[in-house]
Amino acid sequence: MGPPNKQTRSNGELTLSLSRNLPDLSTLPDYVLIHILSFMDPKEAVQTCVLSKRWRNLWTCIPSLNFDKSGFEGSHAAFVHFVTNMLLFRGASKLDTFRLRWHACQKVSTHGQENCQIHVSNASAWIFSALRCKPLTISLDLYGFANLQLPHALFTCSSLEHLELQFFDSRRAATEPSYVNLPNLKKLNLRCFTLSDPVMQMILSGCPLLEEFCLDSCSLNFSCMKSDLLRCLTIINCRGSGLVEFFLPNLVSLSLKNEYPGKTKLSLKNTPSLVKISSCMAQV
């Protein structure tokens, strides 16, 4: 929001002046119209360019992009065409949030259905161009793409405060980072990841400000998790092979949820600050 046009009088009264001459949307300042556009589906937002001279380029300033194939009318090729163009035409305008939700079609060879695997390289190009705008939040939900390569820059983006990753593919290793350096990351959500000791170690040492960590449907193949700053930990439907020890001295909130009984044993060490535990386990 912009600064309110307020004036304080000498007698101590505060006057809020709402400038308003004509009862229509044209009186709203640009940042309000851009905020209105950010609630629209990206395609509808771009289509407002035909409304008037003022609206012609307003859509290029939308700071929050949410591309969701499931809500997009058209083929995978049309989706690729649209997202690529929108990112290209908006250029380097301020971008706070970039969300991409794109699930590959299941049966590749079935007659009449397009092969969406050929489009997967576009996803990394989009993520790369989003990263150039120094976003605060990135959320990726990509399902069923065999050869997905995430840009290296995703794991070294200094502006990122919140990262949400959800992948599910047959070659999961390709999506695992080789190096992590996210100096401002506060919140990390991982879904369908395999976490070994080296990977966990790399994430925790690469995200020195991490406060909230959510693991959903992950394989807990690590034996130990150590962090001095972590305040909230959520573990949902994760499977593991053995004992996992947690050394989290500043943990305030722990939430465990497991719908399937498993053999994982979780052990909490030294958590004097813990005040809130919620647990819903089929078998603890």
Binding site: M1, G2, P4, N5, K6, L16, S17, L18, S19, R20, P23, D24, L25, T27, L28, V32
Partner: peptide, 15 residues
């Protein structure tokens, strides 16, 4: 839409 327009301005000024 006129009322919404005014509500937006009021909510913006009053934060």
């Amino acid at each position: 839409i006129d009322t919404l327009n005014d509500l937006i301005l009021a909510a913006d000024s009053l934060d």
